[in-house]
Design a protein around this nucleic acid. Structure first.
Lengths: 220, 220, 220, 220
DNA sequence: TATGAATGAGAATTCATTCAT
DNA sequence: TATGAATGAATTCTCATTCAT
């Protein structure tokens, strides 16, 4: 047996990549987001998340306690992300009709780029949104509601928009028109025998939505 | 009821409940529909379905082979049900604007009465609609698309509606506005801190949707 | 035991029995070998294997994925074991007749000491040897075939053996005479009403086999 | 409801094929033999047997009580079949060497034509031959043993054969050489990378076996 | 911070067999 | 003689999670 003589020897911790708390946590969150989005909360596997994140399964528990907490963290991050994007819209600088159109387009584009968002919400809803209710994060609520309210008011005062529109109601409708289209794509395609996500189809859908929303908002 | 005088009358098999293939199958389908709708395809438990249906778990396999086949059967039946309801609408007898309004109201009411329908679709979509694609049932496609197309045309010819509206696109939008609202109710409620399914809220939502759809369809 | 003076000496992990991957795997393999041999592949129970190995049932799946993979591992190990034993025979040092006799005796003894080997092969054959074909292990093929070929040649050149004997054919025959006798023992005994595994019967069988094989191999 | 007027009307039992006890039993036995041979006793499925026999699963239980009894019946029939074939050999009419050769050839041919026989025996052995021991059928024991004894004696008295050969021992050896070859074909083929059942291979094997047996039996 | 070993509580599915007609 | 309906007891395998280092 070869015995080391130096009790003081301390192996240098290797050129790292290991042992980076932040990196591991972030990798897990991304992996979990993808797994949850693809498989649903119930279909997702902790094993699958660990593999995607290239970390030891045990580490997930170390950082996130359990599957539900992890899902909650993913959900919060997803909301945070879209709220962040919404912040940058600067809708109040635009003429009201332009602002509304831009909001529709933004919602559409976000939905196309981040289909995982609606997928996560779907899982959240299946579970009665308990993950959200446990969340103390206040990034959940959209500041856009407020903004949209002001836009509607201004459009109204300019004589462009009709009155009496509930901004929350309108916001939900915009979301509905885009997110439903995307998240029900597979069944809709199967039934209509029509590909709904080709570039042309997407362009048509966006046009339709803008017509629909603006046709409603604007005074006859 | 015409009563036979003869002694040869076949005794009705007693109000038993045992050994009735049709009844068992039907009970399983109902139970499965509810379980799948509440828990999602992945969250649903065969055990739970058996309990709901008050049949032996084994019997489910006897009639439906496995979970996926059962889900497919449930899905087909759900489509069949809504298509059936659509059939009875008789929209072509109405003035075009009334017809469109009635379709919106029908969709809304169906959605409220049968939230399981969208829930099933959600699971189907999470699984890339493979259950639908394996289905040879042709009740899937909605005959309403056709009807809606004719209504739009007629409204157009009467000078009431704008032209160039794709009936499929419009149909999807109507579905989106109602089904998204219902199926995302929990997260939306949590975020907006507002109960979306109170009688008043439902009435407002329906009014909003009608305004939106009719405002778009009708010529300025 | 050489005692180190240093405080830095790593404490030997105690004679525990827990948390030893190698030990667990080995225990499972032994248990599985016995269960498969006694019950056949289809009759074997994962539960039974876990009990025999005194490990958690789940651990079997942890290490071996599923029943088939486990069986394959067992099979490979069994081949490895007999090939190992064959290696040690050193037949080439003996006069050809002695070598042949020793091979027969070895086969017989191995068969008596390791009846599980033929039992495993029987299961493998029932399943069309798919486990073997999936195996990339090259310990499967017997090196004895080669050796036997050389022995036959030398015997021939010494004028002791007849010519034109296919070593593979002969090897199969030696195996057949022993393994068939052992693995069909129960039916043969039942039919002939004669105990085939008494010391006397075994001795007679071995003598018969040697006579048979040597009588064939040696020139008249 | 259309009521039949004739109480006496008796539907003629249809051109039959149904309700033929003998036919059903025979079909089940054949189907069971094939299923047991292909899958082994444990791997065989009552369902599979019913399907093969094109009868209702329940009928198997009606005629054969349970799986074990069915297996026993199959086994007995298999023995009966080979004993029957052996009866017709008329070995005593031949010169002793011819008789022995004919027995080897017969065994080989039977084995090639009826691989299910050895397969059934294999299952029987895995279960310690309990099915045989429960069997009161006396067709089990081979009359050939007797015949072979006489042949050996005669050959001996004619100065052709060596003495002291145990006919049972020899009979087992002949069976071993053929049945082992056939029933271990898959593993042997996999290991030797050589197809053992091609016409040429079969011919070579038979020749080898005859050489082996006759080389042993005949006086030098 | 990180990880391989281990596990209990299910989960879907299978299978021989019985029930009721 | 024949059969569709029904079932209890397994059986394999899965999954989130904890242990021990």
């Amino acid at each position: 047996m070869t015995v080391s003589t130096a009790a003081a020897v301390k192996v240098t911790p290797a050129p790292e990549r290991q042992r980076d708390a932040g990196r591991s946590q972030a990798a897990i969150l991304v992996a979990a987001r993808d797994e949850f989005a693809e498989m649903g909360l119930d279909g997702a596997r902790m094993e699958g998340i660990a593999t995607r994140a290239a970390v030891n399964k045990r580490l997930i528990y170390y950082y996130f306690r359990d599957k539900d907490q992890l899902f909650q963290a993913v959900l919060e991050k997803a909301y945070q992300h879209i709220r962040n994007a919404e912040q940058k819209l600067n809708l109040l600088n635009l003429p009201p009709p332009e602002a509304v159109r831009k909001l529709v387009e933004f919602t559409w584009n976000y939905c196309m780029k981040h289909p995982e968002f609606q997928s996560l919400l779907t899982s959240a809803n299946l579970h009665k949104a308990r993950h959200l209710r446990q969340s103390r994060a206040r990034e959940l609520n959209s500041p856009v509601i407020d903004t949209l309210g002001r836009i509607l008011e201004q459009g109204r005062s300019e004589g462009l928009f009709r009155g009496g529109i509930d901004p929350t109601q309108l916001y939900i409708s915009i979301a509905a028109l885009t997110f439903f289209y995307r998240s029900n794509n597979d069944t809709l395609s199967a039934i209509f025998g029509r590909h709904l996500l080709s570039p042309k189809a997407k362009q048509e859908r966006l046009a339709h939505m803008c017509d629909l929303i603006l046709g409603y908002v604007m005074r006859d």
